[in-house]
Design a protein around this nucleic acid. Structure first.
Lengths: 211, 211
DNA sequence: TCTCTTTTGTGATAACGTTCACAAAAAAGA
DNA sequence: TCTTTTTTGTGAACGTTATCACAAAAGAGA
């Protein structure tokens, strides 16, 4: 009987994993091969007790009086985050923000790659940004199915957001990062996360004024 | 003895306020002047019980068997979020992402305005994006003090992020939205929030694969 | 080897957040 | 007016997350 993934990983822990992973890679680049929870705490700005609790959900990863082996932590978390496998992304909406994301294209990350983009504006159709081709919305379903893409980023304005997301979902996409703030309706098996700059700023200003 | 802001508003509630506010403004535009918690729940995708609990921290805002007056909710939340007062923002880092943000400049929001930008690249100095002037980093302190800016957005790459943020903090900025993932050191009175696309996507993919 | 130091892993506890479920208030209808 | 319906506001129950605090394990040094 295999002993993989014993208990369910708490939500709050899962959300911190990418942060941990990124900082472990950073330590690896620096040549650091050993880290203890209080040093790591300074780096990621999460309390050391929380770090130890989080790590403990993956088994006993460390050694008392020594700390954690950076390379071993990376191997454990890269498995959980499934970073060995490249996640191909589609981008819908090649406006200012969309183009900026295409130009960056997660250059520092080898596990996330935007492979195609779509826009309403027919004049963009056939052009490329970097190496990434922009297609018309009519070609969306065909391209996404052909490329077997399951994850997408939408920078389509709120007004047209629901339409774009319906199209993505009907083409087989099950995970969407949406930059438009209005909540969209999707089937239960589809995951939508929102990044809303206005909300982030208003929250920031609120906490700044009230704490 | 004034009875303003009786109990402390829970963190989780405060984070949902901008979402509530935005959707109430949307309802107002539509001409809806009355809403009950279960209808509002469908719109914002937050359970109705949570909405009522959240609202209750601001007093008894509704009427049994009727619901809530949209305009009254807006007046209460706009006070808490302090949206009547315009928050002037500075942007540091006028690369792809920075320029995209300048071009958008929260057009749909009258309470947030980017008024100046700064970049390392001297050739940008003296140019504008839209109406917004780009200055060199040498002019940062002077401009921020002159304009009495307390809030900033940084799209400076991780490597130079700490430097840029030190400069902002020394110029009097106390709230920063940082697009670089590496955690920066700031004095206790300064608030930093992070938006990290890679983390967002990895979390999204993780939840998509594991739930 | 023995002692001292470091640091983990984790039960216990506290803090925080969500959801339930319903009495009471107000509205709507007859 | 009286009855029925709607919907709030909120204690209480529940669930999740953070933090504490320390025994036990392992390292380091003599």
């Amino acid at each position: 009987m295999e002993e993989t993934q014993v208990k369910k990983i708490p939500n709050a822990t899962a959300k911190r994993l990418p942060l941990y992973y990124r900082n472990l890679k950073f330590l690896e680049e620096l040549g650091t091969c050993r880290i203890n929870s209080s040093e790591f705490s300074k780096l990621v700005q999460v309390p050391s007790a929380t770090i130890r609790k989080d790590f403990s959900h993956f088994g006993e990863l460390g050694r008392s009086g020594y700390g954690y082996e950076v390379s071993y932590l990376i191997s454990v978390f890269s498995q959980t985050l499934n970073v060995k496998e490249v996640t191909k992304l589609a981008l819908v909406g090649a406006g200012n923000l969309g183009k900026a994301l295409l130009k960056n294209n997660f250059r520092r990350n080898d596990d996330l790659v935007i492979t195609c983009a779509f826009d309403n504006n027919e004049t963009l159709s056939g052009t490329t940004v970097g190496e990434i081709p922009i297609y018309s919305m009519k070609e969306l379903t065909q391209q996404i199915k052909k490329r077997k893409i399951g994850t997408a980023i939408s920078t389509v304005p709120s007004k047209y957001s629901q339409n774009a997301i319906d199209l993505l979902v009907n083409s087989g996409v099950t995970a969407i990062l949406n930059f438009a703030p209005g909540r969209v309706k999707v089937p239960k098996h589809v995951h939508v996360h929102y990044i809303d700059l206005t909300t982030e700023l208003q929250t920031l200003v609120y906490f700044n004024e009230n704490m």
